[in-house]
Design a protein around this nucleic acid. Structure first.
Length: 574
DNA sequence: ATCCATAGCGCC
DNA sequence: AGGGCGCTATGGAT
């Protein structure tokens, strides 16, 4: 496989085969054709930032199979405790994280062009990274992580390029059903207007604006309700005729402002919702998104996500991904046994750890998030007794965070350190003259950071699994059908994917989704027996998955066949 | 007019 | 008094 370094200037693209030496300079407009040729000859692309060039290649119909996104990889390697020596670039160009760069890109008047690396910088950084990884005691894990991260960069661009099929007519119908018809000249829809009247009457405040929390709070006080906030869960405990319409109003008003007609006008074009995906936009390695709030499409509106005629949606999510990943990380065979089958929480009940599924869920999430009080905190001792290895792993991560240390995911993404103020606070509190307030605050801050690091290792490793899953899936799908008529990814959200597939290939797409999950599990955890169960459905509308998934989670356990999987094409295996 | 922090709620 | 986000409206500050 030939590695080709790529640097982008304004109108030019420079290529250098890392096996040879001579550069090739082409017009940017010629890049799709030239890169397409080299791609077919088996190139792997090495560049500073996938976003520099890949979107326009996609627009020109060129899909690439493999790349190294040096900036994303640098961010990992600059922090990873898996490196024997910290990555030392003398070139500060690479110090700027992807997230930082995105800040710059905010659509302002001063929109600066993206900072660019030249070809020598690209080649030097690639050498540096390759050498650093080769020296690492965990080189296999790091190579897998970097391959997955880079594949993610390609996938993110492709997801944006394709967009999620979204039917604005269905969306309009749903909104109309819930809110009343779209107001023709602005203003509130009829249903909201009606609720507003009820609220104002019940509270005796004809001019009340319930969208203003302080104003609403004052109004509640005047009718003798002593609420301390206007949060849903607090309001719902109050007994007053205004409460019911108020809660409905808040829900619908939220829906209107976040995902109403205006939202659809702004974000849906030509039947596709195209958020921008930001790989590693979250410190744990999860992706972020920009635009349209793609991380929070309300379940209420998922019916508007529909396959095109002759196509279907394969919707899959990894059930209870985080506790399963934790079991594998900790080699906790007993937790892995509870995870066998579709429902890990039910597994805890069957193993006699807790009495009900609901308790199992609360206890497990409490362990992952660091709950100390309430029902979850009460259940912790039983969880610790039953699963000392799994709980021990997250406890260790929490303790490390409380000491201000760095923790690292399974494949090698390390946590940031708290800011200087955090260490100063800890230091001050440990002095003999420190006051009780000072000490209490420092302990609080230590525990807060511990909860972050506790969750970091699990959330981050789950994100790695999801990346491996998607990367392998992408390659499998690329082998099905001709380019214009084959399944492709259209959505990703932490542990859930949607594939848009021609009807006739739906079965193969489903199969690929399962196989990719097995591959991801095997690549990350080798022979450790852990079942990463998928909830999977082929549907016409995204909404069809919801009730089924809920019922399945409550009542059933689905069996997964563990078939052997073959070689993967995207990861750097040793 | 524009920036910023906060409250609140949606998702995992 | 549970981890991670994005987004909107509000209201005070500039």
């Amino acid at each position: 496989m030939e590695e080709i370094a790529v640097a982008v200037a304004d109108d030019l693209v420079v290529l250098r085969s890392l096996g040879g030496a001579s550069d090739e300079t082409i017009d940017r407009s010629a890049a799709p054709v030239r890169l397409g040729e080299l791609e077919r000859a088996g190139a792997r692309w090495v560049w500073a930032d996938t976003r520099e060039l890949y979107p326009e290649l996609l627009r020109a119909g060129v899909r690439l199979e493999r790349c190294v996104d040096l900036r994303l990889c640098h961010a990992i390697l600059a922090a990873s405790t898996y490196l024997a020596e910290p990555l030392q670039s003398s070139d500060t160009f690479w110090d700027r994280s992807p997230a930082e760069l995105l800040e710059d890109e905010q659509p302002t008047l001063l929109a600066r062009p993206m900072e660019r690396a030249d070809l020598d910088q690209v080649v030097a950084e690639h050498r540096l990274q390759t050498a650093a990884v080769a020296d690492s005691p965990h080189r296999h894990r790091l190579r897998l992580l970097l391959a997955a991260e880079s594949a993610g960069a390609l996938i993110a661009a492709e997801l944006h390029h394709h967009g999620l099929p979204f039917d604005v007519a269905v969306h309009d119908r749903q909104l109309t059903e819930l809110l009343g018809p779209k107001p023709r000249f602005g203003g509130r829809p009829a249903v909201l207007e009606g609720l507003l009247g009820e609220i104002r009457t019940a509270l005796g405040q004809p001019g009340l604006n319930p969208d203003s929390p302080p104003e609403l709070l004052r109004a509640l006080h005047t009718v003798g309700l002593d609420a301390t906030s206007t949060r849903q869960w607090e309001l719902s405990k109050l007994d007053h005729p205004a409460i019911a319409p108020l809660l409905t109003y808040k829900k619908l008003s939220r829906l209107l402002s976040a995902n109403g007609w205006g939202w659809a006008d702004q974000w849906v074009r030509d039947g596709r919702f195209r958020p921008e995906y930001v790989p590693a936009g979250v410190v744990t390695g999860r992706w972020a998104t920009r635009g349209g709030g793609a991380l929070q499409i309300p379940k209420l509106l998922r019916g508007a996500v529909t396959a095109e005629p002759g196509w279907r949606l394969v919707v899959a999510d990894a059930a209870q991904l985080e506790p399963r990943v934790l079991a594998a990380m900790a080699s906790d065979h007993r937790l892995a046994r509870a995870a066998r089958g579709g429902d890990l929480y039910q597994g805890l009940v069957d193993e006699g750890v807790v009495e009900t599924r609901a308790k199992a869920k609360v206890a497990m999430l409490g362990a992952l998030y660091g709950a100390t009080t309430g029902e979850s905190g009460q259940l912790m001792p039983r969880l610790i007794k039953a699963y000392p290895r799994a709980t021990g792993l997250v406890e260790d991560a929490a303790r490390a965070g409380e000491r201000g240390e760095v923790v690292t995911t399974w494949l090698g993404r390390s946590s940031p350190r708290p800011g200087p103020w955090w260490y100063e606070g800890q230091n001050a509190a440990s002095q003999p003259e420190a006051g009780p307030t000072e000490q209490r605050r420092a302990r609080q801050q230590a525990r807060d950071w511990g909860r972050f690091t506790r969750n970091f290792v699990v959330q981050g490793t789950a994100a790695e699994w999801a990346l491996c899953w998607m990367a392998d899936l992408r390659n499998r799908l690329a082998t099905l059908g001709p380019p214009d008529d084959r399944p492709y990814l259209v959505y990703f959200l932490h542990d859930e994917i949607i594939v848009h597939t021609p009807d006739r290939l739906a079965d193969q797409a489903e199969h690929s989704v399962r196989e990719a999950a097995h591959t991801a599990t095997r690549l990350m955890f080798g022979d450790f027996e852990i079942d990463l169960a998928l909830d999977l459905a082929t549907v016409t509308s995204y909404a069809e998955t919801e009730p089924a998934a809920d019922i399945a989670a409550e009542l059933e356990t689905s069996e997964e066949s563990l078939e052997p999987v073959d070689q993967t094409g995207w990861s750097a295996q040793a």
